[in-house]
Design a binder for these strands. Structure first.
Lengths: 355, 355
DNA sequence: TTGTATGCGTTATCAG
DNA sequence: CTGATAACGCATACAA
């Protein structure tokens, strides 16, 4: 409301507020952040009024340096543009704001060197928490250094939480890929399917491996499992991408699909690619062959037929990570989030006896 | 409870490094951040060695307070989980990292009160830049206060950039909705379409209005426009959502679609909803009727037939925003990003003469 | 080239 | 309850 009389470009400091209110900086500080209740209400009122009049905002860096601790949480993700990570980021942001924390975000871009560099400079921020989502810890070289770096941060009083990365010596929240795939297998069995193919990625990709294993475990757990009942699914290895799914489905068709009633692709984009490949080959998804994926990305609803999938609680993962970070170090068990099967038109119930 | 001593070591300070290297803090500071070249190479080497040995990282808050400026850019978005904003965030992050800046992110969640609150506390961070993406400035009440707040920040030396918000007194980068829709209209005309319907949102939504207007402008610019050639498109108002698109298409079918060859929905999710509605009504998209959208979301590729759309350079918007923020205040013209038409199977070329 | 001293904005300590 | 004043970790005039 009050226009600046002089083009003063420096933001007001606590000193200015104190002077305006006619008290000392100490009193002003106390009145503002209420570290101690012991300030006369009249003075408190005047300080608050002065702060409002000057449009004062405390200098967070100064507070950090004086208090010896910040109110920030650092989040490093592989790629924010990826819905997978942006959902996680949304969860983290939500929980952080609820806790009155500021979140700083860095994008590792799939490079472990970059990731290491980020964690290093992050330590300079002295955040209360570092959350790493989607770390690529393949290169053993950077892996060791990253762990060291993170551990140094932790011994300095910081909390670190990993998301979807269970084999690191830090608190972890992960999605139950195995259980989700197992449940999917059972749901398909209950829908009447008996003969399956699995489109999976190379075994070095843990996510794919877990889902593949879980699916097979689900099949084996079926009462009628064995030579006479549910057979081991046909396994086709391919890339973890839409193109990979397309190619694998094409190969499956070439091989012959007489003995396959349903196809499980270890993620949705692969499943969607596979559906297109089937259609291109004259095999109608949902009618001639059932298709299921994993992740339950938004597109799963947009394809025809709508894709059966396993919903992964990504936002929840972000929330849990923050929750984990804010609980006492000791009693903070790792979190495993359940994935939920979502049946849609791509896997219609199969009439018993139909062949 | 008393804090337990977990071998919790305080992070090393510049003091520690200096002592380890046997020099003064001043020399250590100079050697590390090279503010002045005047440090004996032998000492510089020893300081760097000491820093490495202690795993020292400068305290960013302390640097900020000493230098009087931070190296951070604050980004406030409506919703990170939304691909629209996460793409923008990715662009901002990329450009920020290239410039050696740290990005802090806050989610406004569609609430202008929350947005205002965020901007307020953001000022406490003393960031070099504040970027606001997807601001909802409808409530005139908070709108004025927000502008004041932002202007206070700017007179304090900060830079503010708005994304997709052209009517605020700050630097802005926006997508050329009008031009994109106009180009789309021309492309459809060139493909042989002459009779159109537009599925749009209420006029209070500027994005919808701009696209609608642009589309009509494109039709009018056609040589054969007029009663004998291209007629004004049928306009159907609905919600800016998938459900809105579905409903509008249903209404269109009820009304009769004999006089409509192509439908333009002002965004992709509406278009996708419309495609489903058409199919449900026995009208095959891409064959019986053409459909086009706007935004070119990833799902546009996943639907059948693939959806013709207008690609919006979201990541580029983020990059441009940072670029704009880092250029001199004076010569920083607003940026308008071109949107690119992408023709796909949902609008196949139409044989001349076919009716 | 190096060290000393001072300041940045805030909180915390410790006398009044 | 309040006000000096000493930290906090770092950068930088100024002096040596």
């Amino acid at each position: 409301m009050t226009a600046m009389e002089h083009g003063s470009t420096a933001p007001p400091t606590l000193h200015d507020v104190a002077r305006e209110a006619g008290v000392s900086v100490a009193t002003a500080s106390r009145a503002l952040n209420g570290s101690a209740r012991n300030v006369r209400s009249e003075n408190a009122r005047r300080v608050r009024a002065a702060a409002a009049k000057l449009n004062y905002e405390p200098h967070l860096s100064a507070q950090a340096i004086a208090k010896g601790s910040t109110r920030t949480v650092a989040l490093v993700v592989r790629d924010v543009a990826d819905p997978y990570f942006s959902s996680i980021a949304a969860g983290v942001a939500q929980a952080a704001e609820a806790a009155g924390l500021i979140v700083t975000m860095a994008v590792a871009d799939g490079s472990s060197e970059r990731e290491l560099e980020i964690v290093r400079t992050l330590r300079g921020q002295r955040p209360q928490v570092i959350i790493v989502a989607g770390s690529r810890v393949e290169g053993a070289g950077t892996r060791g250094v990253l762990i060291e770096e993170l551990e140094a941060y932790r011994t300095a009083g910081g909390r670190v939480v990993m998301i979807s990365q269970r084999d690191l010596p830090f608190g972890t929240v992960a999605v139950d890929n195995h259980g989700g795939a197992r449940d999917l297998a059972r749901a398909l069995l209950e829908a009447g399917y008996r003969r399956f193919a699995v489109l999976h990625a190379p075994g070095s990709l843990r996510t794919s491996r877990e889902r593949h294993d879980g699916f097979r475990a689900g099949l084996r757990s079926w009462p009628g499992a064995g030579p006479a009942g549910v057979a081991e699914p046909v396994a086709i290895e391919t890339a973890f991408t839409r193109a990979g799914g397309y190619d694998a489905a094409r190969r499956l068709v070439e091989r012959g699909i007489e003995d396959v009633e349903a196809v499980f692709a270890v993620n949705d984009v692969m499943a969607i690619g596979a559906m297109t490949a089937f259609r291109d080959a004259g095999v109608i998804p949902g009618a001639d062959i059932a298709v299921a994926g994993f992740d339950d990305i938004p597109s799963a609803l947009d394809v025809v037929p709508a894709l059966t999938s396993v919903a992964v609680p990504l936002r929840e993962a972000g929330l849990s990570a923050m929750r984990l970070a804010l609980t006492d170090e000791a009693d903070a068990p790792d979190v495993r989030l359940a994935a939920r099967v979502v049946l849609r038109e791509s896997t219609p119930p199969r009439q018993a006896g139909r062949r």
